[in-house]
Design a binder for these strands. Structure first.
Lengths: 257, 257
DNA sequence: ACAATAGTGTCTGTCAGACAATATTGC
DNA sequence: GCAATATTGTCTGACAGACACTATTGT
């Protein structure tokens, strides 16, 4: 009876056509804040942005594309995506999530290449250095609206569209909003983050629902100081606002109950 | 300036290690009904089952595994998965959905093989022929509980576990229950299907919530005959029950509203 | 009559949605 | 005082959750 390695050697001698690569592409989202021009303290304008790179070589030379790179045999796709993310942004240990694979024949002129798409959520402070060298760079943040209107390389337009749908859905059904916020935040900030990702979101009694509705009360909690006093912030307003943090509770949703 | 094909030819001469295949594996779920032994009409027992095949050759010869097969350069992964699904079950045009990729190095002794996992939901009537030749077959339905306790080939245990989590989540947040039900069904049947997939689901006032709660009323509707009379069924009960069908409305859930 | 499922009555406390009103405080 | 945001008051109709109760009909 033959050993495994014999069989493997035997197997690999087959002449099936095999893929020419398995890259991971990453849709890196961030929310940028720009102060409003008012005489009083006010909430900043927040905008959902996505990081694109300008391609240097064939194919699609000069066009903007999602950052990505070929994965290696010795790593998982997630490792590959994380590596790429760190190369582009300099940060690691960031929320990153797989969402789809793209395999339409001919999608990549280099050959049979199935791309694996991740999205990552990065706090804007981590991208501060990037934003300094802004105009002439080959790595830039674009507003999502703008990016959706561009002629991106490969099928990256479709990938971006899918990623956007993902993040919008997850923004409303999970607590990923925390990825764009500091540990302690005000209700106003949270509301803005949700609206930056899902512009159609509107909830008149937001503060009331999230703080005093029994069924939703669990997802955030008041931040208390060491003496049990409630910590507040007046960073964005004259009147100080209560600070909250996300709890560890995982919301469960159902259309049937 | 060189043409694209020149560049492609030039590019493909690179000697990067490339994957040895990109298979699609499919977790095929169905819900089987077995009549209860009662003297009166009664609802059947429903059980969530998954289709497994017994491997014929190296590697993992003799072990049970998820059905799957290598995709080709000329098809998308979805096409490949659909083809495989039809080969195993004889049915097509069935709900099939991508949910993850598996790329841990060494997961497949045949080489560097990234597997793409789909789940499919098949109405039990389509698998009726399979169930005839039951015991000695190399293709069989297992209850999910049983399958989760087996030593499956490759990392198929993890894939199955992920698929189960997916389908449970989607059962409660989307209308995939329709895939396991006839066009017109009773509330009792719907309740059973949900419970077959999510055993912990329990909703005392189920009929009331789903039929008369304003916010949920849209997802199913009464089935009416040609004269506007309400159609009922007494297949499973002495007292006839109103028939319902799913509407086309897509439920939107949010933890913030 | 009875088993098995289908569906309604009723009650209490909570929530949703709308909008007005008040609170706070740097400028 | 004013602007800008934060937070509470108040009201009505709808819903949630619990449980008891009635309805239907083949066997």
């Amino acid at each position: 009876m033959s050993t495994n390695s014999d069989e493997a050697a035997n197997y690999s001698s087959s002449k099936y056509r095999t893929p020419d690569g398995a890259p991971a592409d990453i849709v890196i989202f961030t929310i940028t804040s720009t102060p409003r021009r008012t005489t009083k303290k006010s909430l900043p304008n927040r905008k959902l942005e996505v990081l694109l790179i300008q391609r240097k070589g064939w194919p699609f030379e000069g066009q903007w594309a999602l950052p990505g790179g070929f994965s290696k045999e010795t790593e998982t796709l997630l490792d590959s995506a994380k590596r790429e993310l760190e190369e582009e942004t300099g940060v690691k240990d960031i929320h990153i999530e797989y969402f789809n694979a793209y395999s339409t024949p001919g999608r990549d002129p280099r050959g049979w290449i199935i791309s694996h798409a991740y999205f990552a959520l990065v706090h804007e402070q981590y991208l501060a250095s990037r934003r300094a060298d802004d105009d002439a760079a080959d790595v830039r943040l674009f507003s999502v609206d703008e990016a959706m209107g561009m002629d991106l390389a490969f099928d990256h337009h479709a990938i971006l569209a899918d990623a956007l749908q993902q993040i919008q859905s997850k923004m409303l059904t999970t607590t990923i909003a925390r990825q764009f916020l500091p540990e302690a935040f005000t209700i106003g900030e949270l509301y803005q983050v949700i609206q930056a990702v899902v512009p159609s979101f509107e909830e008149r009694n937001f503060i009331r629902k999230i703080t005093s509705t029994q069924s939703r009360k669990g997802i955030i909690e008041e931040v208390l100081g060491r003496n049990g006093e409630r910590l507040q912030s007046n960073q964005y307003s004259q009147r100080a606002a209560q600070l909250y943090r996300f709890t560890d509770s995982v919301p469960r949703l159902s259309i049937y109950s």
